[in-house]
Amino acid sequence: MSTKSPFDDRFTKVAETDEIERGDGIAVDVNGIEVAVFNVNGEFYAISNVCAHQCAPLDKAGEQKINADDTWTDTRGGVNEDACTVSCPWHLWEWDLETGEHEASGKRIGTFDVEVADGDVYVGI
């Protein structure tokens, strides 16, 4: 998916705003980089879609689990809109969507600039 950006050449259209539900995310490929784009209270954030712990896809956070029926929740991970974080669906590592930091370990994953124009979401790489 590529549409000419109203911003500089770094930006690529990745979705329309209504395609990403509030509190959810999608995976996109931007110039060969796997990116997760999340809608947090109507603001959009882009972060590496690969958890630095064991490479889980962060865009799957909050989806219904397909195994481990005896655990304490029906879903794994998810977006915390108050804290502006996403928790990994595999081991619940919590990533700051603004900084890419996992506070407990000090590890960071990539974050990317996001712009919105005319109902379209653009990610800058």
Rank of each mutant, 00 (worst) to 15 (best):
E103R: 13
H53C: 05
N67V: 14
E21A: 13
D59R: 02
T73C: 15
D8Y: 08
N31V: 06
D96F: 09
V14F: 04
C84N: 13
V14Q: 08
V121G: 13
W72N: 06
E43A: 12
E63I: 03
E21W: 00
V37F: 03
D82F: 06
A46D: 05
E16W: 01
E16I: 01
M1F: 10
D18H: 01
K107Y: 11
T12L: 05
D113V: 00
D9N: 12
G110M: 09
A27D: 14
G106D: 10
T73V: 07
T73H: 14
D118T: 09
A56D: 02
D82R: 10
V123A: 07
E115D: 01
D120N: 12
T85M: 11
E101S: 09
T99Q: 09
E16G: 05
T75V: 15
Y45R: 04
G25I: 04
W72A: 15
R108N: 15
T17A: 03
I47K: 02
E19V: 00
T75I: 15
W95H: 02
F11V: 02
E103G: 11
V35T: 09
E103P: 06
E19N: 02
H53V: 04
R108G: 08
D113Q: 04
D29E: 15
V28K: 12
E115S: 04
